[in-house]
């Protein structure tokens, strides 16, 4: 029943043996040891398991690993570069966009997908795009500030 799939995980090619019933989240956490993505609601509502597949945010709790064969997957572990945090990660720290941190990898990956699509989103666009990620600590304002900080910084750089 099991089969081998090949994934590019954070730009490293990984060959993994999986069963059809295993989710991408299980493979990333249990087979590959990348535990940033979390299992939350298990029904695609909370966003804690968000990963980027081909650059787009998905609920990895509901994504069959076999279906991800050949895909490019980005997890929170893939955002820093040479020991330097991604500017979204820095901004979340600067604004205090987290308390317990459980939802943070999902929020940051979703925000990355948003900014890759729209470098200068309006506040309304940010809220709409991020609406499917839940933070039980209630850091929404600080998360919004963090994303706006990065979007604004880009605006200055580009301008």
């Amino acid at each position: 029943m099991s089969r081998f799939i090949t994934l590019s995980v954070n730009e490293v090619s990984r060959r993994v043996e999986v069963e059809p019933r295993e989710t991408l989240l299980e493979v990333i956490r249990d087979h590959l040891g990348l535990t940033g993505a979390k299992l939350g609601c298990d029904i695609q509502v909370c966003g804690a398991c968000t990963l980027l597949v081909s650059g787009k945010p998905v609920s990895s709790c509901s994504f069959l690993a076999v279906d991800a064969d050949g895909c490019e997957v980005t997890s929170i572990e893939g955002l820093s570069c040479n020991g330097r945090l991604h500017r979204l990660q820095e901004a979340f720290i600067e604004t205090g966009g987290l308390q317990c941190g459980f939802c943070t990898p999902g929020f940051i990956l979703t925000a990355k997908a948003l900014l890759d699509e729209q470098p200068h989103p309006s506040e309304e666009q940010i809220k709409k795009y991020m609406a499917g990620n839940l933070c039980r600590c209630g850091c929404y304002q600080e998360i919004l500030d963090a994303i706006q900080k990065v979007a604004g910084r880009r605006a200055v750089q580009n301008g």
């Binding site: 695609q44 509502v45 966003g47 968000t50 787009k56 945010p57 998905v58 609920s59 509901s62 994504f63 979703t110 997908a113 709409k128 795009y129 609406a131 499917g132 990620n133």
Partner: peptide, 12 residues
């Protein structure tokens, strides 16, 4: 579609 579920469900 902007109001359907969330971004992850709309992507998949």
């Amino acid at each position: 579609e902007e109001d359907v579920a969330n971004i992850r469900v709309r992507v998949m």
